[in-house]
Design a protein around this nucleic acid. Structure first.
Lengths: 137, 137
DNA sequence: GTAGCTGCAAACTCTTTGCAACTCT
DNA sequence: AGAGTTGCAAAGAGTTTGCAGCTAC
């Protein structure tokens, strides 16, 4: 998602476009990984040294509630975030911590089928694979 | 899994079978839900009022490392546990917090296929569906 | 002007840990 | 006897919040 679209989505939701929010949206739109609050804070500080962790927490929680951002709890003690664009899942390398994104249509169909069988309407779901890279030899 | 098997698995791993551990294994084998540390502590206290939270934390972490127990982080601020028996997944009712277990062979096959395509050997995975019960009308 | 936002520091929640006393084996 | 385990209380990590001042609208 482009920076402009993000800012518009926020304004539309009635949020004031403060300098700190612009900074954070900028950081998010430039990030291609899954940064933690700490990492977002460090990146934001590069553009605006006065920004605080509290603002990063508050902003990310708002963006999560607005659905602009996805919050992940991989098996770590803290959360990671990414822009909520195309729907995808994650393969987490248990040795390096690398996160690989993937999509899978079969999976999408299957999860709907399972929910239906259980009598539920799906609101959200998570699929995380944890693995070890196979060495070619 | 039966209580005896659990105790044997622990002894085999070199753990001393203390009263507190027996109590906790008993609580686990009688629980049919996905209790939190707090809940396990309350249930254990009913049998042994002197047990401490620290012991519950330490014991559950050990059982998790031994693979006798599964630790889940549903979208809450704390962990839930269950005996690691048959492999299954969870549908979490977003309105009531109810957790429904399900198994799905297609899913199992699919996740292996995806991992293989990505060049990974699967170590673990999570699939959680979050949904709202469909009212019949 | 004012509702909303910010930084700061304190508070909170969940979890882990150091330690001296205790207990299985 | 001795290593492992326990309860307690304190510490730790991550996150949230009350408040006084500031800022976008």
């Amino acid at each position: 998602m482009k920076l402009n679209e993000l800012e518009q989505a926020c304004s539309k939701a009635g949020l004031k476009m403060t300098g700190q929010r612009k900074t954070l949206l900028g950081v998010l739109s430039e990030s291609e990984d899954h940064p933690s609050i700490e990492e977002l804070y460090e990146r934001a500080k590069a553009a605006d040294p006065s920004i605080s962790m509290a603002t990063v927490y508050r902003t990310m929680n708002m963006l999560d509630e607005l659905g602009l951002v996805m919050k992940h709890e991989f098996k770590e003690s803290f959360a990671r975030f990414e822009l909520n664009t195309d729907h995808h899942h994650h393969m987490i390398d248990v040795e390096t911590g690398d996160v690989i994104e993937f999509q899978n249509a079969e999976m999408e169909a299957l999860k709907e089928k399972i929910a239906e069988e259980l009598g539920y309407e799906l609101v959200d779901h998570t699929l995380e694979l944890y693995g070890r890279k196979i060495k070619k030899g």
